[in-house]
Write a protein that binds this DNA or RNA. Structure first.
Lengths: 258, 258
DNA sequence: GATGGTTGGTACGCTTTCGGACCAATGCGG
DNA sequence: CCGCATTGGTCCGAAAGCGTACCAACCATC
């Protein structure tokens, strides 16, 4: 476990908005939306656990609920009919799963499931849609996240086409590090191979390469980030664009706030 | 030249809506939006030529105008700071360039430019934003296209990770074929290499492979599709998901209507 | 502390793709 | 009709990654 559950229940700093005594959320979208929009959602939000591999969106099935992630990581995944899959979106406490509803659709051909266990604020699709219908500003606000995710997915397509495995792996580790408390996280080679769309032994070798450069430290089922700038350099431009986009759209992430 | 300019000026079938005498558009979004929403946009729409390589969206620069493509093809392209690029979105008469405005953003880190010359209905960003502000239904309608494009980009990321060059090339040719009148189009190997993010000689070899399977016929600066089902099979699942998504969101494309 | 499932490390030959270079064919403009 | 830029075809060695297989290390459980 690489985050502190206890932290979720401790006191938070002085509220800025009247409502914020109720809005001690780890999720950046909930933290940053207007108090009025948050008030619309809040009665229907329920804190739920996100166990490993829990499906949040099932392909071509109506979306049951939206999840504002508090911590942990969910991946948006595309699959070929033959069962090959690759990660095309990476969502942590800065985002939400089930974003298709924001675009007035009720389902998606892409899957989304939990990759690093955590917690989320869950809201039923019906309640969420009602809030969207009631507040144009809520939809516009959440569309910024959709916009960001589109950029992120585009960059994933770019690095998949252009970068070698070590570079793609470095990017993935950086994105994971951005969304996790602390500098280490639990992850298996097998899992990384599925996400990156490569062979498992390839991941082993690539991790060794990164470890040889003293950028990470790799243990059984665990990776420790040692040198972020080094990883960014190795990702050779594949990391940074979506992150800058998020900052532009939402302001800087306060990583200490998580 | 692989489309018929003259066709743009000939009479169209009997209108369904009162407005449709004015709405003889090749663009599917303009054809399918509600008459009221079309009426909002129509006074500001201007038919413009899309010469090869014309930039429609410049990265990190405010979007000047939205282009509803009548024919021809625009590509959304992601670039690394080092200048490597790859195509992450493919837009023809079924879509629009400058879609970031629909998500209430005024710019994008992704470039968009013309890859196959054609024509578009252009509308100034300010006019377009005014129409969006005036009509919630217009935004919801165009969000379906954003949704579709997100799926398409995701599939691009998937095939870039999983498919070999011949498969990715087959997918690209199919997508091109879907958006072009006739079974042939003008394209250089160099250009395809840039789009797919590979070496130019690699494209030459892959095209020969497809030609050897009698799926296409390749001439200098031109490709002819001979066997669509064969290409779909070779793309091994990489083609079809976004296309089905478009049909679900907008109904079947009437390719004869173009 | 034996057992068995999970996870990680390694090896092998093979295919794909790369990077670079070079030349041939094409077709346009003078 | 010639010259030249564009485009396409080919070749080379090298690197990356694949598919497969096998074994070692680790860990939970009994």
């Amino acid at each position: 476990m690489n985050y502190d559950i206890a932290k979720l229940t401790v006191a938070v700093p002085t509220p800025v908005y009247p409502l914020s005594s109720l809005s001690s959320f780890g999720n950046e979208l909930l933290r940053r939306m207007s108090p009025a929009d948050l008030a619309l959602l809040e009665p229907s939000l329920k804190r739920v656990a996100l166990p490993l591999r829990m499906p949040l969106v099932t392909p071509d099935v109506p979306i049951e609920a939206v999840y504002f992630i508090e911590h942990g990581i969910a991946s948006v995944v595309a699959r070929t009919p033959t069962g090959q899959e690759a990660e095309i979106g990476f969502i942590g406490y800065e985002g939400m799963a089930g974003y298709s509803l924001v675009m007035d659709d009720d389902r998606s051909p892409l899957a989304c499931y939990v990759q690093l266990e955590g917690e989320a604020m869950r809201i039923d699709a019906a309640c969420f849609n009602a809030a969207l219908a009631a507040s144009p500003t809520l939809r516009l606000f959440l569309l910024r996240f959709v916009n960001y995710l589109q950029v992120q997915t585009g960059c994933t397509a770019l690095v998949n086409a252009r970068l070698r495995l070590a570079g793609r792996l470095a990017r993935w580790l950086l994105m994971c590090d951005d969304r996790v408390v602390g500098i280490r996280f639990s992850i298996t080679h097998e899992f990384l191979a599925t996400m990156l769309g490569v062979r498992r032994p390839g991941v082993t070798v690539a991790l060794q390469e990164l470890e040889g450069l003293a950028l990470i430290r790799s243990r059984r089922g665990e990776v420790v980030i040692l040198d972020r700038p080094g990883l960014v350099a190795l990702a050779s431009g594949g990391y940074g664009v979506p992150e800058a986009e998020y900052s532009r759209l939402f302001g800087e992430l306060d990583s200490a706030a998580q």
